[in-house]
Amino acid sequence: MAEVKLLGAWGSPFSRRVEMALKLKGIDYEYIEEDLANKSPLLLKYNPIHKKVPVLLHNGKAIVESLVILEYIDETWKTNPILPEHPYDKAMARFWAKFIDEKCMPATWQIMFRKEDEREKAIEEAIQNLKVLENELKDKKFFGGDKIGLVDIVANFIGFWLGAAQEAAGVELVNKESFPVLCKWIDEYVNCKVIKENLPPRDKLIAFLQPRFMASTWKY
């Protein structure tokens, strides 16, 4: 039987992605919580370049970077695929996953940490990116169609972390008036059993984020 271990951190959307994929696939694994302020020898051994979570250990071999890990999981365990079968659809899923990581996430975090005179531009950029994402979702239940797929898993930050970050920072970026389609997806997403079971406690996450935003240039 294959030995699967996951080095992660409770508040990391990146390591939670991997847990979601493992649970959707029905894969047994051992979870090892990392203290990122005091990184373990195990983490430094298996991810010496980035020294970050998540790290998936499969029979002693390490795979790092959440998007790479998700594809590895899908290719290794064929049940309940998270990537489409058709090459074009697969390519599009990869494109939107990268769009979320490279455009949506950085833009939304910048709102929380930018100086006051730079915040308006950051808000504009974040709204524009989220509108593009909402247009891609259109009338689908999930980005993956009728079931959760790669893009939905990668979008866990928007589905859960963004709401907690908005509350912690005292700002509102996404609401039902501005993003009705995205908000409908968020409701479906966080109430999906596998996703719901693999989200951190909201109160704990907000308490973790608040002092970080208060220490930044954000002023309430």
Score class of each variant (00 low, 15 high):
Glu71Lys: 12
Val53Cys: 11
Val64Gly: 02
Glu34Ser: 10
Leu70Gly: 13
Pro41Tyr: 00
Lys45Asn: 12
Lys52Val: 06
Ala62Asn: 13
His58Ala: 08
Lys61Glu: 12
Val55Lys: 07
Leu57Arg: 05
Asn59Cys: 00
Ile69Ala: 01
Glu71Thr: 05
Tyr72Glu: 07
Ile63Phe: 13
Pro41Trp: 13
Ile73Arg: 07
Leu57Thr: 02
Leu36Trp: 01
Val68Gly: 11
Glu71Asn: 14
Glu30Cys: 03
His58Gln: 03
Leu57Pro: 12
Tyr29Pro: 05
Leu56Tyr: 08
His58Glu: 01
Leu44Ala: 06
Leu42Ala: 10
Asp28Arg: 11
Val68Phe: 08
Leu42Ser: 06
Asn59Ile: 11
Ser66Gly: 11
Ile32Met: 12
Val55Thr: 04
Ile69Cys: 07
Gly60Asp: 14
Asn47His: 09
His58Ile: 06
Lys52Asn: 06
Leu70Phe: 10
Asn38Asp: 15
Leu67Gly: 05
Leu70Pro: 02
Pro41Cys: 06
Asp35Leu: 09
Gly60Trp: 02
His58Cys: 08
Ala37Pro: 00
Leu67Trp: 00
Asn38Gln: 14
Lys61Asp: 08
Ile49Lys: 03
Ser40Gly: 03
Glu30Asn: 10
Val53Gln: 08
Leu57Asp: 09
Tyr46Gln: 00
Asn47Val: 09
Pro41Asn: 10
Asn38Pro: 03
His50Arg: 14
Lys52Tyr: 03
Val53Pro: 03
Glu65Leu: 07
Ile63Asn: 12
Lys51Pro: 00
Ile49His: 05
Gly60Ile: 07
Tyr31Ile: 13
Tyr46Arg: 09
Val55Leu: 07
Asn38Lys: 15
Glu65Lys: 10
Glu30Val: 12
Lys39Asn: 09
Ala37Tyr: 11
Gly60Arg: 05
Tyr29Gly: 10
Leu56Arg: 02
Val53Ser: 05
Glu34Asn: 06
Leu36Tyr: 00
Pro48Arg: 02
Ile49Tyr: 01
Glu65Tyr: 03
Pro41Met: 12
Ile49Leu: 14
Glu34Trp: 03
Asp35Thr: 01
Ala62Phe: 11
Leu56Gln: 06
Lys61His: 09
Gly60Met: 09
Glu65Cys: 04
Leu67Glu: 06
Leu57Gln: 04
His58Val: 05
Lys61Gln: 14
Leu67Asp: 13
His58Tyr: 13
Ile73Trp: 07
His58Asn: 01
